[in-house]
Computed example of a mutant assay.
Amino acid sequence: MPEAKPRNIVESFFTSVGNILESPVIWVREKIVEPNQKQYPWYHQKFRRVPTIDQCYEDDIVCQFEADAQYRRDKQVDSEVLTILRERFEDCALYEAPDHLEKCTPLLKQYEDATTNWFIKYGDLGAYHNAKTAFMKQKHRMVWERRHGPVGCGMQGKVAE
Rank of each mutant, 00 (worst) to 15 (best):
E58A: 07
E58V: 08
D59A: 05
D59R: 10
D59Q: 07
D59M: 07
D60V: 01
D60G: 07
D60W: 04
I61T: 13
I61F: 00
I61M: 12
V62H: 01
V62I: 13
C63Q: 04
C63T: 02
C63G: 05
Q64S: 08
Q64N: 04
F65H: 03
F65Q: 15
F65L: 14
F65R: 15
E66T: 04
E66G: 00
E66K: 09
E66R: 14
A67M: 11
A67V: 06
A67T: 05
A67G: 04
D68G: 06
D68Q: 07
D68K: 06
A69G: 05
A69N: 13
A69M: 11
A69H: 14
Q70H: 02
Q70C: 04
Y71N: 12
Y71I: 06
Y71G: 09
R72P: 00
R72D: 03
R73N: 08
R73L: 05
R73S: 03
R73T: 03
R73Q: 10
D74T: 10
D74M: 08
D74A: 07
D74P: 01
K75E: 15
K75D: 09
K75N: 09
Q76N: 12
Q76D: 15
V77Q: 06
D78G: 01
S79W: 03
S79R: 09
S79E: 13
S79I: 05
S79K: 13
E80I: 01
E80H: 12
E80Y: 09
V81K: 06
V81I: 08
L82I: 03
T83S: 11
T83E: 09
T83P: 00
T83N: 10
I84W: 15
I84F: 14
I84Y: 15
I84Q: 15
I84S: 14
I84M: 11
I84C: 04
L85T: 05
L85G: 03
L85F: 08
L85Q: 09
R86V: 05
E87Q: 15
R88Y: 00
F89W: 12
F89K: 07
F89I: 02
E90Q: 14
D91Q: 12
D91F: 10
C92V: 02
C92I: 04
C92S: 09
C92D: 08
C92L: 02
C92Q: 11
C92T: 04
A93P: 00
A93V: 14
A93R: 05
A93L: 02
A93G: 07
L94N: 13
L94Y: 03
L94D: 06
Y95S: 11
Y95D: 12
Y95W: 04
Y95P: 00
E96C: 14
E96N: 14
A97M: 06
A97T: 06
A97C: 01
A97Y: 12
P98V: 09
P98T: 07
P98L: 06
D99P: 00
D99L: 15
D99C: 07
D99H: 10
H100W: 10
